[in-house]
Design a protein around this nucleic acid. Structure first.
Lengths: 179, 179
DNA sequence: AGTTTACTTCAAAATGAATTGAACTTTGCG
DNA sequence: CGCAAAGTTCAATTCATTTTGAAGTAAACT
C-alpha cells in the first residue's frame, strides 16, 4: 500500500477519463519512492508526494490533476507546489490555449542536489566552524589537567569540522561526473 | 541564550558545590553546538543536550549531575542516556567505590560517524535501489512516446542511486585519514 | 457587471514526536 | 527485613509541524 493514499480506482479497468490500473500502480510506487527519500531529508510527505506524482507522469499535470491523483487538500497542493517551485524541483510549462498552469518535473536534478548541498551542509559546516571558534574563546582557563582535557576536546571538534569541509569539494566534483 | 535551558546560576560566583560562571557558559555553548548539529541529523534535542553536557565536562558525570545541569526530567535523562549508550556516544565508567554510574563521552567519534553512515545512508541507498528495481518492473508497457519518457525517468533515478552508492566508499576512505 | 474557474492564504484541526512525571524495579545499607 | 538511593518504564501531556478547509483574490469568460 502506498504510504500516501492515491485516489481509488478499479483494478483492470480504464476509468472514465482516467488512467489504467497499471498506471495507477506505477504512480503509487513512484510516490512511495519519493516519500521515503524525503523522510531522510526532512521534507514533508505531501511535498514529496506531489513531486512523485508529477515525476510519474509523462505529460505535464495541472493543479487539479495533482489534487485528484493524490488525496490531499487544495491548500496542500498549493503550498507543496510553491515549495517545489522555489527549490526548482518542478517547473511551470505554459498551457497552450488554456487558463490552467501545468507542471512538470525539472529533470536537472543536479542543480537541486547541489543547492541542497550548499544550503544545508555547507552552511551548517560553516556556522559550526564559527561557533567552535567562539567556544574556544569560552574555554575555562587554567593550567591544570581539566582545562587541558577541554582544550583537547574542542580541538577534536575543530578537526572534524575541517575534515567535513574538505569533503565537500570532493562531493561536488563527483556530482559533475557523468551527469 | 542556550537553546536548552541549563540550570540557573549566579554570574561571577562559584556556587556551593557548583561550577563557576565561565564553566556554565562553556557548558551552554557546547550544548548549543550539539543541539544544532543534531537538528540536521534528526536527533532529539534532549539527547544532543545530554551529549553536549557530558562532552563539556572534563570529568565523568553522574546521572544526577546531568539532570541538574540541564533542566530536563529524570525520564528524559534515562532515555537519552540509553540512546547515547546504544550508539556508542557515551560510555559508562565504573565509579570507584560509589553506587552511581558515571558517564563520559566516547571520544572515538569515527566509529559513531561510520555507524551513522552505514545505518542511515548506506541502508537507504540500498533499499532505494531495490525499490527502483521494482518500479522498473511496474513501468506501464507501450511503444509510444509516453512509455519511453517514463522509462528514461526511472533510468535517471537509477543513475543517481548508482552515483550516490559510488560516493560512499570515497567518504569512508576520507574518514580513515588523519584520525 | 456578474459568474465561473483557478489558485492562494491562513487560522484552526490533526498528527506525530519528544518530554514529563508518577509508579515501579533493583541494589546497597543499617 | 525495611528503607533509601538510583534508575527505568510507560501512559499521559506538551509541543512542533503538517494538513485541512473555508474565505479571499485574481483573471477569464458571457
Amino acid at each position: 500500500m502506498p504510504s500516501v493514499a492515491i485516489s481509488p480506482s478499479h483494478p483492470g479497468l480504464v476509468l472514465p477519463g482516467g488512467r489504467a490500473a497499471d498506471v495507477v500502480a506505477f504512480e503509487g510506487a513512484m510516490v512511495d519512492f519519493f516519500v521515503d527519500a524525503a523522510e531522510l531529508l526532512g521534507v514533508p510527505k505531501s511535498v514529496a508526494a506531489i513531486y512523485g506524482i508529477v515525476f510519474a507522469s509523462p505529460v505535464p499535470l495541472s493543479f487539479a490533476d495533482i489534487g485528484s491523483r493524490l488525496d490531499i487538500s487544495k491548500g496542500s497542493v498549493s503550498q507543496g507546489l510553491r515549495v517545489l517551485r522555489e527549490v526548482g524541483a518542478v517547473k511551470e510549462v505554459s498551457a497552450a490555449a488554456d487558463r490552467a498552469e501545468l507542471f512538470e518535473p525539472d529533470l536537472e536534478m543536479r542543480k537541486m542536489v547541489q543547492r541542497f548541498l550548499e544550503n544545508r551542509l555547507a552552511r551548517q559546516l560553516e556556522q559550526g566552524g564559527t561557533r567552535l571558534g567562539q567556544l574556544a574563546k569560552t574555554l575555562p582557563q587554567g593550567r591544570n589537567g581539566d582545562a587541558a582535557v577541554l582544550r583537547a576536546r574542542v580541538k577534536q571538534l575543530q578537526n572534524w569540522n575541517t575534515k567535513a569541509r574538505a569533503l565537500l569539494p570532493v562531493v561536488r566534483t563527483f556530482l559533475k561526473l557523468g551527469g
